[in-house]
Amino acid sequence: MLKLQRLSLRMMALKPQRLHNIAETTSQSVAKRVRTMTTESSIKDAFAKYTDYLNDLNEKRERVIKASRDITSNSKKVIFQVHRISKHNKEEVLQKAEKDLADVTDRYISRLVKELQGTDFWKLRRAYSPGVQEYVEAATFCKFCRTGTLLNLDEMNATLLPLNDPSLEPLQINVLDYLLGLADLTGELMRLAIGRISDGELGFAKKICEFVREIYRELTLVVPFMDDSHDMKTKMDTMLQSVMKIENACFGVHVRGSEYMPLLGSDDPTSFLLGVPDVEI
C-alpha cells in the first residue's frame, strides 16, 4: 500500500512536467512552421515584384529603341535637306530643315522624354543614345548653316524643357551624347565644305574648315579625361580625318586657284551663307 502511494505521487509529479514539455515542443514546431511559411511567402513576393520590374523594363527598352530609331531616321532626313543648300536656295532649304527638325522634336523626342521621365533612364542609355546623337548632329548642323555658330548644350536642353512633366525632374541631353553628336557633325561639315568648293563657294568652305578645326582643338582637351568613353576616342580619329580632308581640299583650291576658277564659274571670295570675307588657310 505504501509502495502504491509512492508510485502515485511520483506519477503525479511527472505528469505536469510531461504535459509542459509536450506543449512547449508543439508551440516551437508551430512557431517554426509559421516562420518558415512567412519567409517563403516573402521571397516569392519579392521575386514576383522583381520579375514584374524586369518585364516592365524590357518592354520600356523596346519602346525606347523604337523611339530612338524614329529620331535617327527623321534627323537624317533633316541633314540630307540641309545638304541641298546653295547660294540660290539658302533660305528656302533652311526653313524646310528647321521645320522638319521642330517636327522631330515635337513628335519623336517628346515620346522619348515621356518614356524615360520618372525612371532609371541611365539603365536605358545604350537604347536611346544613337537617336539623341543624331538629333544633336541635325540641330547643330542647322544652327551652323543659319548663323555660322555652334548650338551649345544649354540652348538645346532649353528647347526640351517644355516637353517635360513639370512635376518631375526634367530629362536633359547629357554631355557625353552631346559631344558624340558634335563629333559626327564634323563629318557632315566636311561633306558640305567639299560640296561648296565644287559649287564655287570657297569662302564658306574655308569658314567650315576653321570651325571644324576649332571643334577638334577643343575636344582634344576634353577627351583624355573621358576614360570610359571608347566611342568618343574612336570618333576623334574620324574627326581628324575630316579636318585633313577639308584642309587638303581648301589648300588645293588655294594653290591651284587659277585652274579651278573656270570650272567653278566664280571668283567671288565672299561666303554666300555667312557674309564674311575669305579666310586665310
Rank of each mutant, 00 (worst) to 15 (best):
L161E: 14
Q241S: 09
K60G: 03
A249Q: 06
L168D: 00
E137I: 06
A138Q: 01
D106Y: 12
E137M: 11
I85D: 02
I197D: 02
L7N: 08
T186K: 04
A67G: 06
Q241M: 05
W122V: 10
C142S: 10
N157L: 11
H88W: 11
Y50H: 10
V243Y: 00
L57F: 13
P166C: 08
N164M: 08
E40G: 12
D177N: 13
I109A: 08
E91F: 08
S242W: 04
H83G: 04
L192M: 13
E137C: 10
N21F: 07
L219N: 05
E210H: 09
D103R: 15
C250K: 03
N157R: 12
E247A: 03
A31R: 15
I208N: 01
L180D: 01
L101Y: 06
D278R: 10
K123L: 14
D227T: 08
L19I: 01
V132T: 07
S258G: 01
L189A: 07
A13L: 07
I65K: 11
P16I: 04
R61V: 06
N248G: 04
T26N: 10
A139M: 00
R18D: 02
K114L: 06
L160H: 09
R61K: 15
A193W: 02
V243A: 06
L150S: 07
T149F: 14
N152K: 02
D106L: 14
E62K: 14
D154I: 12
Y128C: 01
G265F: 08
H83P: 03
